[in-house]
């Protein structure tokens, strides 16, 4: 019957699984390449400011004096420009979409002070050595230094 042309489609839809993604009941399923939000590994960042200068919307702010990197989620257009330009690859595009906000939504990351690693290791080593010496060789303390 030509006036009921969607008959075949309707019958198929009636007996097959619904197409709906049932979002809040089932979790969000992104693809691998989905562009959701930008995240940073702040310890690798060298604060060069390339992402700050190249962002087409001005969402990223890098302040060298404070060693901070911040991004305004309400402005970011997920164009992937900062991620592709970063010289040390500390920026990644994550798949989870940006959360909703009630007011402003600026995330700031501050680069931590670098730890004095060689000294820490030497102290730890000397502590262990001192313990070993104390446990095994008591006579060593009597030796003149």
């Amino acid at each position: 019957m030509s006036s009921f042309s969607l008959f075949g489609t309707s019958l198929k839809n009636l007996f097959s699984k619904p197409a709906t993604k049932m979002y809040p009941a089932k979790p969000f399923e992104p693809f691998e390449a989905t562009r959701g939000h930008v995240s940073i590994d702040i310890e690798k960042c060298i604060l060069c400011g390339l992402c700050h200068r190249s962002c087409p919307v001005g969402a990223i702010t890098v302040v060298r004096e404070d060693k901070s990197w911040s991004i305004d989620a309400l402005r970011c257009i997920t164009c992937n420009d900062c991620v592709s330009r970063c010289p040390v690859s500390c920026l990644t595009m994550e798949v989870q979409y940006m959360p909703i906000a009630i007011g402003e939504s600026i995330s700031t990351f501050v680069k931590p002070e670098p730890k004095e690693e060689p000294e820490v290791e030497a102290e730890a080593g000397s502590e262990e050595e001192a313990e070993l010496e104390a446990e095994t060789e008591v006579e060593a303390e009597a030796e003149p230094e």
């Binding site: 979002y23 809040p24 969000f28 989620a73 309400l74 402005r75 970011c76 257009i77 997920t78 164009c79 979409y97 940006m98 959360p99 909703i100 906000a101 009630i102 007011g103 939504s105």
Partner: peptide, 21 residues
């Protein structure tokens, strides 16, 4: 404005979150 939804273009899942909020 009561709720802001970021994104370009905004995702339908984020819109559902926003309507619920």
């Amino acid at each position: 404005v009561d709720v802001y939804v970021p994104g370009c273009a905004v995702r339908p899942e984020a819109l559902i979150d926003a309507v619920v909020a």
